[in-house]
Amino acid sequence: MVPLLSVEGVTLRYRTRDHLVTATYRVSFNLFQSDRFVVLGPSGCGKSTLLKAVGGYIQPTEGRIRLNTTNITGPGPDRVFVFQEFDQLLPWKTVKENIVFALTASGKLPRPQAEERAVHYIAKVNLTEFALSYPHTLSGGMKQRVAIARAMAMEPQILLMDEPFAALDALTRAKMQEELLQLWEETKFTVLFVTHSIPEAIRVGNRVLLMSAHPGQVRAEVNSRGADVPDASGKALSARIHELLFGEGTQQGVANHG
């Protein structure tokens, strides 16, 4: 089977004021249709940089990223981003206009159809009564739901989610994870999801890529069934992930947390 997205030996470097930083080193993985592919790693493992490279904002210094066997050369509406920041909605447009603008500006749909689709996706994230509100009047969780609706309305080949729930409180975060899974059940979109939270990775992903830091390298790729269940050897998935990321020594700490 041909992967939808293939990342092959990708090394990413970027320049700061006085350093050349290697963010990831020879990272490879494949995404297939309807994957909920999670990239998990500690801060500094280059996971966000990697996502930006898939988004086309950064060019790899080595290796290549291909979508449907075509090299990615720049940002495009076939890969739509959901960011961590609450300010990703354009504040000068209402909730509905944010989605309509995304669809018309990218040339996906003419205005009448764009409005119809916007209404449809706003209903999907249960924000119908806020369709005409401006983003600054919404709570953080609602803003993220609009951002998700906007990204889904674009019906891209891949959704790129950069820690979309990281700035939310724990209760809202858990609720949003459930909603995301529900939406996935309905439309079976493909998503590349970046997080630094082990429970979130297990809950959201069906496949989890573990990355080590400085520079980011692939440590493992594991499967998840959505719950933190023990495998054949009797070890919980979270414990295995913790071990792979941080080594044997810290295993005790996880066991204590149950």
């Binding site: 720049g74 890969r79 300010d87 990703q88 354009l90 995304a102 040339g107």
Partner: peptide, 14 residues
């Protein structure tokens, strides 16, 4: 202008 808005704009291929 917020870098996020800039990235959003680029994402739509304006």
């Amino acid at each position: 202008v917020s870098p996020t808005w800039k990235m959003v704009g680029q994402n739509y291929g304006l």
